[in-house]
Simulated assay, not measured.
Amino acid sequence: MDLRQLPALNALKAFEAAARHESFSRAADEMFVTHGAVSHQIRALEAELNIALFERDGKRVRLTEAGGRYAKEVRAALMALAEATRAVRAGDRERRLVVSILTSFAARWVTPRIGRFIEQYPEIDLELLSTNGLADFARDDVDAAIRFGFGKYEGLHVEPLLDEVFFPVCSPTLNGGRLPQTPADLPQYPLLRSDDELWRPWFHAAGLMSASEPKRGVLYQDSSNLLQAAIDGQGIGLVRRSIAMHEIASGRLVRLFDIDGPSPWAYYFVCPPRLLETVRVRAFRDWIFEEVERFQALYGRACAAGRDGAAEVLRTAGQ
């Protein structure tokens, strides 16, 4: 059979819908096209087949005998094609894993480590969706998410993944390498601002009860941009542990003091309950919890090594 002799697929789809509804208008509504478009497709199909498929009585249409026979065959063929397409997509979807992750966490924490997941699970096609918006699992094509917040996500499986702390960092070349020696020195340096306003809680943790949030300078709403500003020597940034450690290990940033500021938010592993036991989601969940355990142990060793030894501990571990 010469498949080049088959009518156009759009014409067959329009005919099947019109035959099922016995209405060009309802077929048009189903296909999100105009009544005229459906009518044109069917007239072209009739001309190609050289046979009338519908009898027309004003605005009303009904199938001819030949049209009825043809409609059954066309419907069966389209259903078979739809089922074959669904099966192919389903097979591919079982291998495809889509994870929504906060942009800064994806860039600064997940990406440096993701090679281990790829090596461990080469059969999984991982897609990292970097976004600061919350994934809508009912609408978006997302399997799991790492969210930074309070952990209240109704209707979803939620597990605490990683607590967070904040501390000040800067470029080792800031102020010609003459860096603050005590927390009380910080007001003499440019402090980078964010809309989280976490400087005051950190100052309180450092015993500086009268210090306040910086009021001048650029306001950074993205943590990754603030971190980059610190790397570029624009000032001292108060940053999250998770996104700063890689830069400290590389020597691009220096942690100034061994004082952690509290974070009102934490990271959570989130997914629809029905997806939790799928192979792809379970693999990612197990992997990222292992990475977090490794990260926390490494952070503990770095803190124990003090300011001078922390970077070396991280570099040795490859962080």
Rank of each mutant, 00 (worst) to 15 (best):
Ser223Tyr: 05
Asp92His: 08
Asp260Ser: 13
Gln181Arg: 13
Val88Glu: 15
Ala304Asn: 06
Leu63Asp: 07
Arg280Trp: 02
Gly133Pro: 00
Leu78Arg: 04
Leu49Ala: 08
Val142Asp: 06
Cys170Leu: 14
Gly133Met: 09
Ala302Val: 05
Asn225Arg: 08
Met79Tyr: 08
Leu9Ile: 15
Glu123Asp: 13
Leu3Tyr: 11
Gly309Cys: 11
Arg193Asn: 08
Pro122Phe: 09
Thr316Ile: 07
Ser171Arg: 01
Trp199Asn: 06
Ala11Cys: 03
Ala37Asp: 00
Leu192Arg: 06
Leu226Lys: 09
Glu16Tyr: 04
Glu46Val: 07
Arg75Phe: 08
His35Arg: 15
Ala229Gln: 02
Glu293Ala: 14
Leu63Arg: 08
Gln221Trp: 06
Gln181Gly: 10
Gly58Glu: 12
Gly217Asp: 10
Arg116Lys: 14
Ile114Pro: 03
Ala205Phe: 03
Ala18Ile: 11
Lys215Ser: 13
Phe54Tyr: 07
Asp57Glu: 12
Asp232Gly: 08
Gly155Thr: 07
Ile288Gln: 01
Glu73Gln: 13
Val33Thr: 14
Asp195Leu: 02
Leu78His: 04
Leu219Trp: 09
Gly207Leu: 12
Asp136Lys: 07
Ala229Leu: 02
Ala283Arg: 10
His246Leu: 06
Gln41Ile: 07
Pro190Asp: 11
Ile231Phe: 05
Arg285Asp: 03
Leu81Thr: 13
Ala82Thr: 13
Arg62Asn: 13
Val98Phe: 00
Ile146His: 00
Ala266Asn: 03
Ser194Trp: 01
Val254Glu: 10
Arg255Asp: 06
Leu227Ala: 04
Glu30Ile: 03
Phe295Pro: 02
Met31Phe: 11
Asn10Trp: 10
Ser23Pro: 08
Arg139Glu: 12
Gly151His: 06
Ile114Met: 08
Leu256Ala: 09
Phe105Glu: 01
Pro168His: 02
Ala144Asp: 01
Ala311Ser: 12
Ala206Pro: 06
Leu227Pro: 01
Leu174Cys: 04
Glu22Leu: 09
Gly91Tyr: 00
Glu46Asn: 04
Thr131Ala: 11
Gly251Asp: 05
Ala87His: 12
Gly68Tyr: 06
Val239Gln: 03
Ser171Pro: 00
Glu22Val: 04
Ala266Phe: 01
Ser25Gln: 14
Asp196Thr: 13
His204Ile: 13
Phe284Thr: 02
Ala206Glu: 10
Arg200Tyr: 10
Gly306Leu: 07
Arg60Met: 07
Asp232Ala: 13
Ala8Tyr: 02
Val33Asp: 09
